[in-house]
Nucleic acid binder design. Structure first.
Length: 864
DNA sequence: GAAAGATTCCTTTTT
DNA sequence: GGAATCTTTC
């Protein structure tokens, strides 16, 4: 392994004598360096750099690693679409996407007021397709039926690994090739951008660039496209903005503040969830009010929130669907137009649709009734965001005469895996019921049983998994064929740390997203404000960033004026400058700010937009603010800003850029590097790997205690489906593990193995554990409580310090009271190293080497 | 008005 | 362990 050799060489170069100076993290960072280029957020590195107060104390090696490689710098999501192929349209939302479609002479181009007449069929009707057509090759009889039954509604019940994407793409190809419809008369809808992209690529391979014209995208992106031409019908301007979750919360908090609702009594998050569930069920404020029920306050706030959004000329994710539904239901002509347009509808992951999406689909399918839904009730794992498995169950009722096709031949997993997954999921009630059977014959020697393994704690688990990965690697398995699938995001940390120390390259899918970064959001707020002066949220965000001396009081005043005069914030500020309302200082600062914004706006036409963006960030002092910032992540932020500007090149204008951003918020790292994937079970749906690691199968973790607490049996069944999804991701082997002890919120807890572990069928499972803990079943692990080691942990005795957590692990509080004497050397998270001058109770006066003399509480420093 | 310091929550999954 | 918020201090 070239990488590993490099790590070894690095370790040699960094002499042990250097360790005290550079710290253990220098070593860790080499691991990072070795796995450079991975888009995962690397917390260790981040922490390291934060701990090193100044960059000079960081080893040059490590520094460059942190700065150039390991620093969180996700790949630009759209990078590929430009470099790889100019002819492939980027994901479909307005902008360049629609431009492409127009060039295909779409008679129903987005903003036209096209007649409701059926589109002219260019060729002479359907054209027969030879049975040896490439997209019909390699289909089994059921798949063939699903692909070629083009007339009328079709429900494809497609178990895991039975080739549902193949069916969908072949079906699209078949429709196009048979000339049953033009590309723009086909609507293919998915849930994730990733799925949309994959489908697009695969259809493109089958039928070529014609596929560009297909209306293919996520529910949200397609709705946005539709809504653009009907915005005024729901009280929005055509240039409305789509808010991301952060902005949504801000709006909601403002609304709550205005209504004098105490955020403590009514947590905004909870209220937001309630509102979103309403929207998932297509419940408008009116309907919510008519609903009855006790949440009177929530309804009022819901209405206020919607009003507020409208006045901001904005909508949130849920609104995209809700508004389109409103348009469809209130404007028969528009509805008829869209209904007439889409001759074929294809729906991926139908079991995940919520009520709003279901209504949307049902409306659109009315005219031609050629709707094909593909789904698997056993993989319904999104009920928490409003998905209704019921949609799949009632399909035949809603579409009488629907053809139901079951795909049960699994082409992915070994018989052991299939058997285990089937047995597990059989514990659920209320299933449509499918039995997966092997669709391919596996070589006997390649078949491994599922393994379960009991381990001591989370760290041991991570170590064990890393060792397994190395073993597999030695056997010639590719790292990219392995995945660690966790229940919740926070579980990734332990594995990341372990993989770094081991030097195994990895990627975390799903972590923090580029556009959600503070600096990116700030920068975009500047752009938004320049593009649309009425964007109050953007104004608020940047008016005092960087600090201009416009504090809360000033902003409040601006708000008051805005409300009183019914004008956007920027306009209110403009008026305010001419009055004496503000203190002279604030007034001056505000005047300058407005002047700047005006100047930037005047450049909109003349200056190329990437340059303009750079100018804005520069002249506003925003970049300088970060450059001056001494905190460890500031340089990374400056880098990110540069990337943002660079990314602008790929768009026609600032406006089209901002348009895309709201919906393509993903952080899709490229898979071209050989690396292990770490992701959540939810994120893994639709993917497959040779080897799958399923750690953390412990009660409370998985099934998650909250799922059980909130939705009881239903919650449990959904968790079980999640387990089913996890198992069926694997082609060749699965390793389920669970720890006896786990640190949760910084507290050690002893854990019981998940009930799912027991539900795995004995004959397909090989169980093993540490310390004579064989089997790992509940009964056996209970017996094992008597093992001294286990009971020690159980009764909360202190755990030995782990070897891997020296320097940074203890940067946090230690035994505090009076542990320091004048002259002692100490370390502080922010200020770095220093010498204690004097004590005053628990306050220390410390002369920091770099930061001067400060008074600090003793709990914030640790002895060096 | 701003920053440092202290405290208090929360921790599932995502377009 | 960390984000968000509150309090204190300059």
């Amino acid at each position: 392994m070239a990488v590993r050799a490099r790590v070894a060489a690095m370790r040699r170069r960094l002499r042990m004598a250097d360790l005290p100076a550079y710290g253990w993290n220098a070593l860790l960072c080499q691991g990072v360096w070795a796995s450079r280029g991975f888009a995962s957020m690397n917390r260790l590195t981040e922490r390291h750099c934060r701990n090193s107060w100044d960059w000079d104390s960081c080893s040059p090696l490590c520094l460059s690693a942190c700065l150039r490689h390991a620093w969180p710098r996700p790949r630009w999501p759209l990078e590929r679409s430009v470099s790889d192929s100019a002819q492939v349209a980027p994901p479909l939302h307005g902008g360049t996407g629609s431009a492409n479609i127009r060039s295909m002479s779409d008679p129903f181009a987005l903003d036209d007021e096209a007649p409701a007449s059926p589109p002219p069929s260019r060729a002479s009707g359907p054209r027969p397709v030879p049975p040896d057509a490439p997209w019909l090759q390699g289909l089994n009889p059921e798949q063939f039926q699903a692909v070629t039954t083009t007339d009328g509604p079709v429900l494809v019940l497609s178990g895991a690994g039975t080739g549902k994407t193949k069916v969908l793409t072949s079906r699209l190809a078949h429709i196009l090739a048979s000339n049953l419809a033009q590309p723009w008369q086909c609507l293919a809808v998915t849930f994730t951008n990733r799925a949309a992209r994959e489908m697009k690529e695969r259809v493109g391979q089958l039928v070529g660039p014609v596929s560009d014209g297909i209306w293919l995208g996520t529910f949200h992106s397609l709705c946005l496209r539709i809504l653009r031409s009907h915005a005024e019908a729901v009280g929005l301007g055509g240039d409305f903005t789509v808010l991301d979750s952060d902005d949504q919360m801000r709006v909601l908090k403002q609304v709550m503040a205005e209504a004098h609702v105490d955020p403590k009594g009514t947590p905004p998050q909870g209220l937001m969830a309630t509102i979103q569930r309403w929207k998932d069920r297509a419940v408008t404020p009116d309907k919510a009010a008519a609903d009855g029920g006790a949440e009177g306050q929530a309804k009022t706030l819901y209405r206020a929130y919607q009003d507020r959004l409208r006045s901001l000329n904005a909508c949130d994710f849920g609104d995209l669907l809700l508004h389109v539904l409103t348009v469809f239901l209130s404007d028969a002509e528009a509805l008829a137009r869209w209904q007439g347009r889409f001759r074929y509808l294809l729906v991926d992951e139908y079991q995940d649709t919520n009520v709003a999406q279901y209504l949307w689909l049902r409306l659109l399918a009315q005219t031609h009734r050629n709707i094909c839904c593909v789904g698997d009730d056993d993989q319904s794992i999104y009920s928490w965001r409003g998905a209704e498995v019921g949609n799949i169950l009632r399909f035949e009722k809603d579409f009488p005469g629907a053809k139901v096709v079951r795909l049960e031949s699994n082409y992915r997993s070994t018989p052991h895996i299939l058997a285990a997954a089937s047995t597990l999921i059989a514990n659920n009630e209320g299933r449509l019921g499918k039995t997966l059977r092997p669709g391919i014959i596996h070589e006997p020697e390649a078949i491994e049983k599922i393994r379960t393994k009991a381990v001591w704690d989370g760290e041991a688990e991570a170590r064990m998994v890393a060792e397994e990965i190395e073993t597999l690697q030695r056997r010639g398995e590719k790292l990219s064929s392995m995945a660690i699938l966790v229940r919740a995001g926070f579980q990734t940390r332990e594995f990341e740390e372990r993989l770094i120390t081991t030097g195994i390259p990895y990627r975390v899918i799903g972590g923090p997203r580029f556009y959600e970064r503070l600096e990116i959001r700030d920068a975009m707020a500047y752009l938004r404000l320049v593009v649309s002066a009425a964007d109050g949220l953007a104004f608020e965000r940047v008016v005092n960033t960087p600090k201009r001396g416009l504090g809360e009081a000033a902003v409040q005043t601006i708000h008051m004026v805005a409300r009183a005069e019914q004008v956007p914030l920027l306009e209110a500020a403009r008026r305010l400058v001419d009055t004496d309302e503000l203190k002279p200082k604030a007034r001056q600062a505000l005047a300058r700010f407005i002047e700047d914004v005006d100047r930037w706006r005047s450049l909109l036409e003349s200056m190329p937009h990437p340059e303009l963006a750079a100018t804005i960030l520069d002249e506003s002092g925003y970049v300088d603010m970060w450059k001056a910032d001494k905190s460890a992540d500031a340089p990374g932020r400056v880098e990110n800003l540069k990337e943002l500007v660079a990314a602008l090149e790929e768009y026609d204008s600032l406006a089209s850029f901002l348009e895309h951003v709201a919906l393509v918020m993903e952080n899709d790292s490229r898979a071209d590097l050989d690396s292990v994937v770490i992701m959540t079970l939810h994120g893994a749906k639709g993917l497959e790997f040779d080897s799958v690691f399923l750690p953390g199968w412990e009660e409370e973790v998985f099934p998650h205690s909250r799922a059980l607490a909130e939705s009881g049996t239903k919650g449990l069944e959904e968790e079980r489906r999640l387990a089913y999804v996890g198992l069926t991701r694997a082609r060749k082997r699965v390793l389920v593990s669970f720890a006896a002890n786990r640190r949760i919120y910084n507290q050690w807890k002893s854990q019981l193995p998940s009930r799912f572990v027991e539900e795995l069928p004995e004959s397909h499972v090989e169980r093993s554990g540490e310390r004579g803990l064989h089997g790992g079943g509940l009964a056996e692990s209970k017996a094992a409580w008597n093992d001294p080691a286990w009971s020690r942990a159980r009764f909360g005795q202190p755990r030995r310090e782990t070897a891997a957590a020296p320097s940074w692990g203890q940067a946090k509080p230690r035994e505090s009271a009076g542990g320091f004497k004048p002259g002692a050397r100490v370390f502080h998270d922010k200020f770095g190293n220093g010498t204690v001058l004097s004590l005053d109770g628990n306050k220390l006066e410390i002369a920091f080497d770099k930061a001067g003399i400060k008074k600090v509480l003793d709990s914030f420093v640790s002895a060096v």
